[in-house]
Design a protein around this nucleic acid. Structure first.
Ligand SMILES: [Mn+2]
Ligand SMILES: [Mn+2]
Ligand SMILES: [Mn+2]
Ligand SMILES: [Mn+2]
Lengths: 216, 216
DNA sequence: AAATAAATTTAGACAAGTCTAAATTTATTA
DNA sequence: TAATAAATTTAGACTTGTCTAAATTTATTT
């Protein structure tokens, strides 16, 4: 099997691949919080194992085999997050770090039974889709609030920033998954957004609007 | 915090300490499945950290700090085993290896909530006591079936051998936790034991009798 | 097209944990 | 008690994953 470090690299390459065709050494180094030279070493190792496509100086993509492993780890991560929130009553800003450890528990039988135990949830506490036991899931097509115009709106279905600080802020504003919102006004000066939600009206910064995802 | 290897050594020293005042280097090496020289290296490290009392050539005991860590890992191990059997429907012979990984998930908040979620169970699937969040538990005073005489009996409350093969055998014979048994006869030749259980009678080898624990 | 800057890789080192082989200490036996 | 055996430790090496500093490659500017 693969080491914990290998799994973390594969998962990171997967996440970074969503925003860039080829993932660069420096991107990975920043994301994983390590040095570029360490990344190079690991990329060689993963390439030897056939888990990535690596051409020196040109960045990497996941191979089919590598992607399968990455998706499986993401499946585990999201199922454990769901478990922590739904069964153990943690808040959505408290579970990520624990799931970072739990995603490396190796047994697939375990994770499949956990999935069944919870009724095959489709989304984790942050709105991210949970791959099924075959690695299949719908990449939902969400837009940041900052990308829609006045009088448009939708349902909050995800977040881009998963930091506890951001999640706590959203919770305090009742901007939680499933909430219906409409853009009422966009401030010309700082592009902050005034939202209309059930009952009340509230203002969010451009920064927040960029990181809050809705389905139209 | 402590590394995975350190945690495994502390746990092993704890288990071996139950049968011997001082735990020897070779005992540990055999138990952990490593070489004596590796054990020596780790013992120095644990002694430097103040987690064990180590005098070269004389074996080790856990310090108060080391024991606390060991008991906490055992608590996690047993709670996860209970979870796997009671919530995810694994059989008692299937859970040990998974729990060996899960016991290293670091969060104590997580394990305390898991404990609460399951209703604060007192014993794991193999009958072993689960330490509470303060590390307290009753070491129950069990006897192997091989240690009692004819016409004596009790309730099955634990096993000495935790191997899948042994556990599967017991299950097949319906010799499970909570079962009431009485010794009906002891074969003089091979010291095998004939048991009377609810309804039927069955014979077990000396080997099995040695590893099956009962409360009188 | 040079020159410079940025990105990436290579070289050499280090810590953790393990191993084999050799040296040392403790226990056992004659 | 001296010799031998068993247990333990030390010495030196190896792997994984990391780091810093130097070398190399690619990209960007003049
Ligand atoms: Mn997460
Ligand atoms: Mn999540
Ligand atoms: Mn176990
Ligand atoms: Mn157990």
């Amino acid at each position: 099997m693969n080491t914990l470090a290998e799994e973390n690299y594969l998962k990171s390459i997967y996440h970074l691949s969503l925003n860039a065709e080829n993932v660069s050494t420096n991107q990975l180094a920043a994301f994983i919080n390590t040095k570029a030279s360490s990344v190079t070493d690991m990329l060689k190792k993963l390439a030897d194992k056939g888990l990535i496509n690596y051409t020196p100086y040109q960045g990497v993509t996941l191979s089919k085999a590598g992607e399968k492993i990455a998706v499986n780890i993401i499946r585990k991560h999201r199922l454990w997050e769901y478990f922590l929130v739904e069964k153990l009553d943690f808040k959505w800003d408290e579970v990520h770090e624990m799931a970072e450890e739990m995603e490396h528990i190796s047994s697939n039988e375990l994770i499949d039974r956990l999935d069944k135990f919870m009724g095959y949830p489709k989304h984790d506490p942050h709105g991210d889709p949970i791959p099924d036991c075959n690695g299949l899931f719908k990449i939902h097509n969400l837009k940041p609030v900052s990308a829609i115009g006045v009088h448009e709106g939708g349902v909050i279905c995800g977040v881009r920033d998963h930091s506890p600080a951001f999640l706590q802020y959203l919770e305090k504003q009742s901007l939680i998954i499933g909430k219906k919102i409409t853009v009422k006004e966009i401030n010309e000066f700082d592009r902050s957004v005034i939202l209309q939600t059930a009952g009340k009206e509230l203002q969010i910064s451009r920064e927040v609007a960029n990181n809050l995802l809705i389905a139209l």
